[in-house]
Design a protein around this nucleic acid. Structure first.
Lengths: 218, 218
DNA sequence: AAATTAATTTAGTCTAGCCTAAAAATTTAG
DNA sequence: CTAAATTTTTAGGCTAGACTAAATTAATTT
């Protein structure tokens, strides 16, 4: 039985592994966990004891298959609960993260699988992130960021990179929502802002925003 | 922000207060919590600091209004989640307790209230226990135990005193379920067993069981 | 390649929550 | 109304998980 802290560390390592095939650093984990390096070192020793990670001093850390599966089970729960909150309890996509952070630690396989069934086996959470299946398999969708589209190209908005409540609320205000088809009309050289067409309406957003919006080319 | 342990102690004190208007003993709390007296003493000091209980050494403990409200908020969540598990996720009434023990600590008033709405404002949990309203008000129903009914009297089964999974499964097997109308046909003097009529069918149960079934006289 | 800088680990401390054993207070009984 | 029994509290210890400060290892720079 893993503690919340152990599960959270596994999750952090999982997310950091995406860009760090060779090993995740102690500091990067500490920064993601809002803790300090010595706390992480101590935890890595414990996770290593339990065969959840492969850890050698000063060498960074990587998940074992078992650790990866465990992390994915937590992520699965997190994302299923997010769907539940939005689909069934009228939450907005910017309100669900903190509650899902709590719910993801509830221990009951039956609960997770019944929830999955109740939600009719969703494949994406409210931010467009894929939901792992019970075996820990994740179906990744090819994606690029909006700012990578060229003028004249159109993409379908399929996810956010920055899922901060601030950014999500901003997207709401601009009426840019998951599933929208976005066409790049023009790129302003001066301030690098990007003029986009949203089905019918045109609007302009910053490169920073555009770099946080995942799209698939149409 | 209260810890799980603090919330659990408040809940235990609340439940024990029902039969102990004058003050709940350290040992009784320890036994309900599956812990030891010194751990309870320590916790009582902390809860007292936070004005959740009134505690004087060697004198037993009672909840303050604030403590009572806090306990009821936890109980409310516990029972709402139980309803959710049974009504929406196909759980049986004997499977929900342990999961609700985890879910009851999730912190989000909005979540609780939206869940309440989603479940259409249930007033009882799957074991017949009343669900406190958001203000912490509980509507108690007059009830007596089945073994208190006299021969010839009929009662409606409205709750269980012993909600152990063993007993609940036993009731399932005997096909005695919440809402059944139960008529006492005969009481066996020899072994004190009670013959009851369940709408049409007649069956016999032990006094022990009958003392764990709450009914209202019809 | 040595020296400086940065990252990581070790050492030692703290708090929450639990425990056992011993002491103190209260209750019960003779 | 004392003496024994019971209950409760205190004292002291343990573990998990966090921290700061110091030491060590690795990486970078000159």
């Amino acid at each position: 039985m893993l503690s919340y802290s152990e599960e959270n560390h596994l999750k952090a390592i999982f997310h950091l592994s995406v860009n760090n095939e060779s090993g995740v650093s102690t500091n990067s984990i500490a920064s993601k966990m809002n803790s300090k390096a010595p706390s992480v070192t101590e935890m890595l020793k414990k996770l290593s004891e339990k065969d959840l990670v492969v850890y050698k001093k000063y060498q960074g850390v990587l998940l074992t298959d078992f650790g990866r599966k465990t992390a994915l089970s937590v992520i699965r729960k997190h994302r299923l609960w997010e769907v539940f909150l939005v689909e069934k309890l009228n939450f907005k996509w910017d309100e669900v993260h903190d509650i899902a952070e709590q719910l993801e630690h509830i221990k009951s396989e039956k609960l997770t699988n019944e929830l999955d069934k109740f939600l009719d086996y969703p494949t994406k959470d409210p931010h467009g992130d894929p939901i792992p299946n019970p075996a820990g398999f994740i179906k990744y969708t090819a994606k690029l960021v909006l700012s990578d589209l060229l003028i004249g190209e159109t993409g379908k908005f399929i996810g956010v990179k920055d899922s901060s409540s601030t950014f999500l609320k901003y997207l709401d205000k601009r009426e840019i929502s998951l599933g929208s088809n976005i066409k790049v009309i023009h790129k302003e050289e001066f301030d690098e802002s990007i003029h986009i067409g949203l089905v019918e309406t045109n609007l302009s957003i910053s490169v920073k925003s555009a770099a946080n919006i995942y799209v698939t080319k149409l």
